[in-house]
Amino acid sequence: MAKLLQVNHLRTTFATSTGLVRAVDGVSWDVEEGETVALVGESGCGKSVSALSIMRLIAPPAGRIESGEIFFKGRDLLRLSDEEMREVRGSEIAMVFQEPMTSLNPVLTVGRQLTEGMEIHYRTQPAAARARALKLLEMVGISDPERRLPQYPHHFSGGMRQRIMIAMALACNPQLILADEPTTALDVTIQAQILELMRNLSRELGVAMLIITHNLGVVARYADRVNVMYAGRIIEQATAAELYANPRHPYTLGLLHSVPRLDEPRRARLDPIEGQPPDLTRLPPGCAFQPRCKYRVERCVEAPPLVPLDAAGHCAACWEAANIASASRVTA
């Protein structure tokens, strides 16, 4: 399959009062057509900034995409004019945001917000756009769309609003949807529904998805491939199945161990990652994870590169990756 999205050495920085923060620091990853890729990591590791960089929605003047390439269908998005980029947004790449409560405009009807994208990108006539909006609401599982269309966001619950956000993202038939923590703000029971919905729709329509999450459970069920981020860098890359079976970076290992599992004894202790997520203005030299790492060796003061470990493309950025492989098998 062809690469739909190819991010090369992307670096996005923010000027803050305490100094320049490299929120995304030279990351490379890709999404193939129709595939679901996950970007996983703690808060502040640069996941959301990565997605916003693709959309070129990083707020200037503080935020800036410093370098890198973002190839989408062969075009470098970073070289497009503002107007060309606007045409890409919504029509070819759509985004679903984290906060369904605040991401919809409170003073516009749901119908208005669903149809405006089509009217702009495809000059769809209002009647046709309305018909499509009704269809979209039905697709995302909102009953009685005729009655719902002229209502305002405050008439809908959080889960319903996220369904509307998804319908909005699908409106212009994009090839790629960036879902930035689409379920974080929702109740657990609703989370599963929304994720199922997104997976089914992406399969049905053949839309590729980038799911940004801190929830490894989500990754396991819904992603084909996973990129684990830490302090603005990707520290491990693998297929979802491989990552679970054979984590090779201590941070990934830590994340997996800190998730409760149903197949373990009920009173088994969770094993949290010690310490705090790093302060991006004062990163330690070398590997950013080393202050919290159980496998630290002297060489960790040099930054380890992200290197392939096998032919299937499993990559990890750790000097001790080979040793961790055996360690994780022992504990798993």
């Binding site: 919504g90 945001f97 994208g117 702009i120 956000m165």
Partner: peptide
């Protein structure tokens, strides 16, 4: 919601 509107390409 302004970010959403921008992401829609308005």
């Amino acid at each position: 919601y302004i970010r959403t509107a921008r992401a829609k390409g308005l």
